[in-house]
Write a protein that binds this DNA or RNA. Sequence first.
DNA 1: GGCAACCAGTCTTAAAATGAAACTTGCTGC
DNA 2: GCAGCAAGTTTCATTTTAAGACTGGTTGCC
Lengths: 149, 149
Amino acid sequence: MAKPHIDPAPTCPVARTVDLIGDRWSLLIVRDAFDGVRRFGDFQSGLGVARSVLTHRLKGLVEAGILEVRPASDGTSYQEYVLTAKGESLFPVVVALRQWAEQHMFEPHEAHSQLVDTATGQPLGLMRPIDAHGQLIAPEQTRVIKKTL
Amino acid sequence: MAKPHIDPAPTCPVARTVDLIGDRWSLLIVRDAFDGVRRFGDFQSGLGVARSVLTHRLKGLVEAGILEVRPASDGTSYQEYVLTAKGESLFPVVVALRQWAEQHMFEPHEAHSQLVDTATGQPLGLMRPIDAHGQLIAPEQTRVIKKTL
DNA sequence: GGCAACCAGTCTTAAAATGAAACTTGCTGC
DNA sequence: GCAGCAAGTTTCATTTTAAGACTGGTTGCC
C-alpha cells in the first residue's frame, strides 16, 4: 500500500488498536501466543506466513509492548516471544472475536475449534457489553463522546 | 500483497474472522456504522480511506452479511449501508477492542473518545471472559480443542 | 427545463506490503 | 569438526493501497 497519509495518533481507541493489530497476521500471532507458541519457527510454520513478514510483525508487537523477547526456556541460546501483561490483556478481545465467529462464520454442520474451560471442559460463557451496574447494554443505548481528559 | 496461498476456510474461528475484517479499514467501517454512518461519502470522508478501497471493503462486508444495502432513508434515490443483525452482533468485539485500547494505548494525560451509556453518561462496565457459570476466567484456565461437530 | 454541484463509484498510476524462496549467520547435536 | 537447524535478511515478482482524475446519474435551484 502506498504510504497511508493518516492520523498517526487517532483519539479513537478502536482506530489506534487497528493501526497496531489490524492486519492479517498480528492477531493470529497473539492467538497462537495464547496457545503457548513462543518460537519464531513455530509461529512461521503454524501460520504459514512469510518469514520476512513475520519478522516485521513480531518486531512491531514487541515494540508495542504486547510481546517481549526473552531467552528460550528450553536451555538453548535462542530466544522466545512471550505475551506481556499488556498482551495477556488482549484475551477478552480474542475471546469476543472467537465467540462472534463461532456463531456467525460457521455453518451448523461445520467443524471448528473451540475454546473451553480446562477445568470443566465446557465452553466459556458469552461475553456481552454491560453498563456500569453490570446490566446488559445494546449498541443503541450507547454513544461515543468526543474526548476525555 | 501477493496472493496469499492460505487455507480458504480455516477451522479456527479467529482466523476466519481475521480473513474477513483483519485489515486496516473493515473494523473502522463497522465502528462508524455503529455510530450511525450510512452513506458512502460519509464513510469516505470520515475515514479518509481511498474511494476504491472503500468500494471493495463495503462490497466485502455486504457479501459477508455484516452490512446490507438499502434505499436511503432521506428520500433521495441513493443507497445506504446499514448493519445487519450479524453486523450488530459484532458490538462486543468492538467494545472489547475499545476497552483494551483505552487501558493500554493512551498515556494517562492523553485525551481519547469514550463510549458511554446514553442513559447515565457513564462508561460501560469492563468486558471479561467468564466460564459457563459466569465466573471470571483467565487465559491459563482455558484451552483450545481441535474441532466440534 | 437548464445547469452547476453533488454522490457514488471507476480508472490510472506510483508507492508500499506481501509471498515465496534463496541466502546468511550463528547454534546444536553427534 | 561437520552436517543440519534456527532465525532472520535479501531479492524479486505480484498484489494492495493511496491519491487523485474522471464518469454517469441525481439534486438543488433559478
